[in-house]
């Protein structure tokens, strides 16, 4: 028995390493739903400072877009979002903008761009949500599409073209 002990140790270590790696993989596969849940668990202030519960949109198709006033590509894609919000408003699609910025810097852009969906602002909390939503580098724009089933249906770091988002939304409703 004692002669086999080292072998047993070796085997146990190897198996433990394998199990550990397998668990990491499983964690990676389970992530999309955690991203959606992180969004639903958030409460962020709107431009008037009133905290809004993102879980209020559960059951709808939700497009959550992270942006900032200093981010040129973010500003570039927003007009497309406002058009799609108009197009799909009656079909259970809700857009939410999360500006990782100061409210005073955001307000002029909301007016200039004619944003027709709710815009929430947050700095530190916004970054935390951005990371929890799957953007681990904190790049913007970052857009997450959550289906009516509460699962992440798509995400995009960088500009989400209007035609592509249109197709994604059409497939979800």
């Amino acid at each position: 028995m004692s002669r086999r002990l080292p072998l047993i140790i070796v085997l146990l270590l190897a198996v433990a390493a394998g199990v550990w790696i397998a668990m990491r993989d499983a964690g990676g596969l389970a992530r999309p739903d955690q991203r959606a849940e992180a969004v639903f668990a958030s409460r962020l202030p709107d431009l008037k400072g009133v905290k809004q519960d993102l879980s209020a949109h559960r059951g709808k198709v939700m497009v959550i877009n992270f942006w900032a006033s200093w981010c040129a590509p973010c500003i570039e894609e927003i007009p497309g979002f406002t058009r799609l919000q108009d197009k799909y408003r009656d079909r259970g699609v809700v857009f939410v903008g999360v500006a990782i910025d100061e409210p005073d810097a955001v307000q002029p852009f909301v007016q200039k761009l004619g944003i027709n969906y709710s815009v929430l602002t947050a700095e530190m909390a916004g970054y935390e949500l951005l990371r929890a939503a799957g953007d681990d580098k904190g790049v913007m724009p970052f857009t997450l599409v959550i289906g009516a089933d509460g699962k992440v249906a798509g995400s995009r770091a960088g500009i989400f073209r209007e035609t592509e988002l249109d197709q994604t939304l059409a497939s979800l409703i």
Binding site: K137, G154, R156, A157, G158, E164
Partner: peptide, 21 residues
Amino acid sequence: MAFASVSAAALAESAAPPLPP
């Protein structure tokens, strides 16, 4: 599969994640 509902376009994008700053 968890990714089945991801649109093809979004999947293509997520295949090339942005570089860390």
